[in-house]
Computed example of a mutant assay.
Amino acid sequence: MVHHVTHRSVNCMVITISDTRTKDTDKSGRLMMEFLEQSGHHVEAAEIVPDESAAIQEMIKIGSENPAVDVILTNGGTGISFRDVTIETVKSMLDKEMTGFGEIFRMLSYQEDIGSAAILSRAIAGVISHTAIFATPGSSGAVKLAMEKLILPELSHVVQEITKDLDKH
Rank of each mutant, 00 (worst) to 15 (best):
Val2Asp: 12
Val2Pro: 12
His4Trp: 09
Val5Lys: 07
Arg8Thr: 06
Arg8Asp: 01
Met13His: 05
Met13Lys: 12
Val14Thr: 06
Ile17Asp: 04
Thr22Gln: 09
Lys23Gln: 13
Asp24Lys: 15
Lys27Leu: 15
Leu31His: 09
Met33Tyr: 06
Glu34Lys: 13
Glu34Ser: 12
Ala46Lys: 10
Val49Pro: 10
Glu52Pro: 04
Glu52Leu: 14
Glu52Phe: 11
Ala55Met: 11
Ile56Leu: 08
Ile56Phe: 01
Met59Arg: 13
Lys61Ser: 08
Ile62Val: 13
Ile62Phe: 05
Ser64Asn: 05
Ser64Glu: 04
Ser64Val: 05
Asn66Phe: 00
Val69Met: 01
Asp70Pro: 01
Asp70Tyr: 00
Val71Cys: 10
Leu73Trp: 02
Thr74Tyr: 00
Asn75Leu: 06
Gly76Val: 00
Gly77Lys: 08
Gly77Asp: 02
Asp84Leu: 01
Thr86Tyr: 03
Ile87Arg: 01
Met93Arg: 03
Met93Gln: 10
Leu94Met: 02
Leu94Cys: 03
Thr99Trp: 07
Thr99Asn: 14
Gly100Arg: 11
Glu103His: 11
Ile104Phe: 11
Phe105Ser: 04
Arg106Cys: 11
Met107Lys: 13
Leu108Pro: 07
Ser109Gly: 12
Tyr110Ala: 08
Ser116Lys: 12
Ala117Asn: 15
Arg122Ile: 07
Arg122Thr: 06
Ala123Pro: 10
Ala125Val: 04
Gly126Met: 08
Val127Leu: 04
Val127Phe: 01
Ser129Lys: 11
Ser129Gly: 12
Pro137Cys: 07
Gly138His: 02
Lys144Cys: 00
Ala146Lys: 06
Ala146Leu: 07
Glu148Ala: 11
Leu150Pro: 05
Glu154Pro: 08
Leu155Tyr: 03
Ser156Thr: 04
Ser156Met: 05
Val159His: 04
Glu161Lys: 14
Glu161Gln: 14
Asp165Gln: 12
Asp165Asn: 13
Asp167Tyr: 10
